[in-house]
């Protein structure tokens, strides 16, 4: 676990990837762990293909504001490669740890041919140059195996909780997941969460 207080987590991705749900789950679990929690979210663009970034700040001491200062993100959970790089560019430092789903969601500017999307390996390489360590998680594929590609956000939550980097227990998170979804969706989401936990547990920590 990272000992910093506040512990600053950024979840970044593209509208429709379930940022808000993921940040809510982590935040609610943290509340149940007895921490001060604040979550900063902007989702005006969330359904419109825009980038969406959530800030989750955990503290044992006090309630912090919803925005993380520049260079002070400890953990960046990236649902999309270039959005991860962008967030790291603003909020990362050599202490930042990143957990990244490498599956691109192409910006419309790329689809139209106005801009180019660099090869994912190059984006990941750029990210590696900027942070302490990166875990690349094929979360969309794991989510598909769990039943639906959209649950990649829950796979990623599983990874970050399973990594032990944040002061939140797996069981606590499971309870929150059970509360967060309609009955018929709970089982699949728990499966996605567990696959994320399992994926990260099998890896060497970075």
């Amino acid at each position: 676990m990272i000992g910093d207080d506040p512990l600053n987590i950024i979840i970044t991705g593209v509208g429709g990837q379930g940022n808000v749900v993921a940040s809510r789950i982590i935040a609610s679990a943290a509340v149940n762990e007895g921490l001060y929690v604040s979550v900063g979210e902007i989702y005006g663009a969330s359904q419109r293909g825009g980038a969406v970034t959530s800030y989750v700040r955990l503290s044992g001491e006090m309630q912090y504001g919803p925005i993380i200062p520049r260079g002070m993100a400890h953990i960046i959970i990236g649902f999309e490669p270039i959005e991860s790089l962008r967030a790291i560019g603003n909020f990362g430092s050599k202490k930042t740890r990143a957990i990244i789903n490498p599956r691109p969601i192409y910006p419309v500017d790329v689809l139209s041919g106005t801009l180019e999307y660099p090869p994912v390996e190059e984006v990941l390489k750029a990210i590696k140059e900027l942070v302490y360590g990166v875990q690349v998680i094929e979360a969309t594929e794991l989510a598909k195996k769990a039943g639906d590609a959209v649950m990649q956000n829950i796979v990623m939550v599983g990874c970050v909780v399973g990594s032990g980097l944040i002061p939140i227990e797996i069981e606590t998170t499971k309870e929150i997941i059970k509360e967060s979804f309609a009955k018929e969706r709970v089982e699949a989401n728990l499966k996605a969460f567990k696959s994320g936990v399992g994926e990260i547990k099998g890896r060497k920590a970075v």
Partner: peptide, 12 residues
């Protein structure tokens, strides 16, 4: 690096 590897993402 952001300039080179993170193309802009417009609303759509």
């Amino acid at each position: 690096l952001v300039g080179s590897y993170a193309p802009n993402r417009s609303m759509a």
